[in-house]
């Protein structure tokens, strides 16, 4: 489904974010990417979102070269991917409901679909009672759950989560991981970056370990080890 073919990203002579990275992700997999800060995890994800261009190599998404897409077609491509960030990135002037509805609106869904799907997505992340609150009125964990609901509401082919638990306490972290697992069980591919050992060990799924831009380990049932 996603295939990296000898991808390198070199910012300058002494700053290499990715160095000859190759790997594949199959549909319905749950893949974690671990590594120190600056190992290239975020660059890797930004590559898939076509927010970053590789210096050399190719990134494929469902057999298509991501970086060959025309600029004005990118938004259609991005709708196939649900993204979750460490800094949540909700729209501050929209309520939880509207934030999720916005993702559906831009995908051209009808008002009826929005009215039925948004509450369902909020229920999936256990936030049905907070749908009319603005992001500033929600806790960190709740905001992240709204972001997850927004990411899944369009039924994307893959969820990309960039350190979604970095700013959360252990209980909220477990909650987020449980939700991501549930999404994966329902059939969506999940790609997660983290440096939380507990999260990786409790998942018991595939782990790719990055170090200074290179893949140093790729275990089908990995543990966190650096």
């Amino acid at each position: 489904m996603i295939h990296f073919d000898k991808v390198s990203k070199i910012y300058s002579d002494n700053s290499t974010a990715l160095d000859d990275v190759s790997f594949s992700i199959s549909p319905k997999e749950f893949v974690s990417v671990v590594g120190h800060s600056g190992a290239g995890k975020t660059t890797l994800l930004r590559m898939i979102l076509a927010e970053e261009w590789p210096t050399s190599g190719t990134v494929f998404f469902q057999e298509r070269d991501v970086h060959a897409l025309k600029r004005h077609r990118l938004h259609e491509y991005r709708r196939k991917i649900g993204t979750i960030f460490q800094d949540v990135r909700l729209l501050p002037n929209k309520t939880a409901y509207e934030n999720i509805a916005f993702a559906m609106e831009v995908a051209g869904r009808t008002d009826d679909e929005i009215a039925s799907d948004v509450p369902y997505a909020l229920e999936l992340v256990n936030l049905a009672d907070k749908m009319l609150n603005f992001p500033r009125e929600l806790s960190g964990g709740e905001k992240q759950r709204v972001a997850i609901a927004r990411a899944i509401v369009n039924q994307p082919d893959i969820i990309i989560a960039d350190e979604p638990t970095a700013n959360l306490d252990p209980i909220n972290t477990q909650e987020i991981v449980k939700i991501l697992k549930k999404i994966n069980d329902l059939g969506t591919t999940v790609m997660l970056t983290t440096h939380n050992k507990g999260v990786i060990d409790s998942l018991g799924r595939r782990v790719i370990t990055l170090d200074r831009g290179r893949i140093i380990r790729d275990d089908p049932k990995g543990k966190y080890s650096l």
Partner: peptide, 16 residues
């Protein structure tokens, strides 16, 4: 501008 960045990531077209 950050909002605009988020909108793009969610897949909003430029017109939208």
């Amino acid at each position: 501008r950050e909002e605009i960045g988020v909108m793009r990531l969610v897949g909003a077209s430029n017109t939208y």
